[in-house]
Design a protein around this nucleic acid. Sequence first.
DNA 1: CAATGATGAGACATAGCTATCTCAACACAA
DNA 2: TTGTGTTGAGATAGCTATGTCTCATCATTG
Lengths: 186, 186
Amino acid sequence: MVRHPALRDRIAAGILDTAASVLAERGDAASMAEIARAAGVGRATLYRYFPTREALLLGLTRAAFEELSVRIADASLDTVPLREGVARASRAFIAAGARYAAVVHVGKTYVDDPAEFDRAVAEPVRALLRRGVADGELRTDLPAEVLFEMFTGLLERGLRLVERGQLGAEQAGAAITTVFLDGASR
Amino acid sequence: MVRHPALRDRIAAGILDTAASVLAERGDAASMAEIARAAGVGRATLYRYFPTREALLLGLTRAAFEELSVRIADASLDTVPLREGVARASRAFIAAGARYAAVVHVGKTYVDDPAEFDRAVAEPVRALLRRGVADGELRTDLPAEVLFEMFTGLLERGLRLVERGQLGAEQAGAAITTVFLDGASR
DNA sequence: CAATGATGAGACATAGCTATCTCAACACAA
DNA sequence: TTGTGTTGAGATAGCTATGTCTCATCATTG
């Protein structure tokens, strides 16, 4: 019958989605059999779409990166005030969510081009923070790199809160933004 | 010759230390052979000290927990002002450091008594934050549970910065405290 | 309805890891 | 020095996961 290539892509995407949630939960311990079962598909079929485990992880990483980089680009972090930029970056990260969580939960990284990831995702955020420091909006007693690390730490936890249903996506984005910029104090 | 029990304990502790660093680096993927080699000990010997992999992970978790809970207890979080409490908790966590990093990096948790961990480590910190909220020192627009999550997120990142040598232990503790309480803004 | 091709179930080989066991070499105490 | 006990190295068994393959079944296209 020759499946439509589009249909094939949809199936692959569906498998990736399922794999994302399984891997987010069980980490690298999740086997191909487990993922196939969760995706409601035969193990052989899973291997037809992703010939090796590495290919699957790579596809997953690529999808997460794709989504995240599009959202970051859309956020135009370099044209908005610091506070708005931080808020947008938070929302972008939370929205990319589920896929990204799986990627970070799997120890080894399967990024094919780390430099490109850095350029498209990490660097815009770093630049935003550096600008904040230079403009005197952010504290200068901590290196921008440290601020960046703290920010991403908050992002990860916000993501977790959303996944556990303890916070809505908007609330999480706002919480991250406000804790990072204003702190937890009144 | 009948090794002194004390000596045996020291060897076991040494193995645990090495295991901590190997596991912190490679996660659950690190094999027993790898750990034995890193510890400069035969694989069989490793099994003599820790009869199963689970026993090793359990010992590691227990050591981390032990250290952390002692430090938290020592911090008397319930008797000091909020800011001091947050600072102490940060330092305790950073100091427990290396061991704890391995534990969090290994996906599956090998805690023998999660409730006890919660009671001795997590709960005192939560109580501190709840008190802060009740006293009006911490913001009330975010649930204390969310503040807790944010705080631990910062702790993890601070720990990472120390391990990468980007920050000293004291500096990391201070950075966590100040970002959490005052935020990154000026 | 017939042909084509995708699917699921399962067999199979392979590889790596855990866990056990044996044994020769070695260190220390008496 | 002798004997006891520990160690490292290696062999081995069992298990589990990856990846390949076959085949009967099923869905879709024409």
